[in-house]
Amino acid sequence: MPTAPVKFYQVGSFAAGNRLIDPSLRTVQSELTRSNSLTSGHRACQGCGEALGARYVLDAAMRASGGRLVVVNATGCLEVFSTPYPETSWQVAWLHSLFGNAPAAASGVAAALRSQGRTDIRVLAQGGDGGTVDIGLGALSGMFERNDDVLYVCYDNEAYMNTGVQRSGATPPAARTATTETVGPEPGNVFGQGKNLPRIAMAHGIPYVATATVSEVHDLENKVETAMGIHGARYLHVLVPCPLGWAAPTNQTVHLARLAKETGIFPVLEARDGEVTAVSAIRHQVPVEEYLKLQGRYRHLFRPEPRTEVIARIQAAADANIARYGLVSDDATEPPAGGAP
């Protein structure tokens, strides 16, 4: 290799790996030795973002903890597709208790480990958006407020997918679900509802809150690693497109996650002790239509007639995110190892 450092590495840090960069800068996902915490043979739909996100997160957490990890899982697709008797796809110590109690069960595991003096073992809890922002919110808030030593990961696919795509508190406006059908004067999910869990988490003042998507594995892994380096309650909210629930082509999962970020619809950020400390800059800003039109759940915004005023409202929400978090300002952090020399 040359003596002068060449910082430009073809696919930089955008792809999972890169034969040209220092191995220490490659992702866990690029490595032969990744743990495949969620292994093949699971029954997730083709192109499932949740299956992908879970492997990304857990493999990174396994790496960060040196394999000393236990996982608690809420009910939902992730649990159902991974553990139908007699087969499990997990290759980590894993517990499923209930839909709404994963944070509390994880607190219990953490307490057990503390009482046994096995503090080298780290606890990670995970669930879908329904399990997290709705039914599990009480338990999650309790876990946050007590600052229990748990990393909680929400795989947000923006609806109750496992039960057949019903609306959750994380379902975005205008999206069609089985309980927000595209009928009546305001088809799809209504505007002005829903909750922003990352901000709720931040309001607890916990040491670490971050958002990420399955489209940027470097960023996601960095966040898992950062989170694993901290003790106390930590929250990671990962956007995981669902081909089934979003009525999108199975090969668009990663692309949709990318567009969610690049439109400003899903801000990717990091917060410490309740304050936003970093945001991921939008790299190539795109209008929200680009994102919406790929998804059948928004089909009614384009057919039979384009509903431009609704699209404009969604654009306005994206613009508000961009303004609030400075997603296109110079302060936004560049992706690592991706810039020109």
Binding site: A15, A16, R19, Q29, S30, H42, G49, R55, V254
Partner: peptide, 25 residues
């Protein structure tokens, strides 16, 4: 630097992305 600007069109550049993005390993 210039060589690394090549997109390696149509020929695997071993970026591990397929290995990474497959939800089914």
């Amino acid at each position: 630097f210039e060589a690394r600007r090549c997109l390696s069109c149509g020929n695997c550049l071993e970026c591990d992305n397929c290995y990474g993005v497959c939800p089914d390993n």
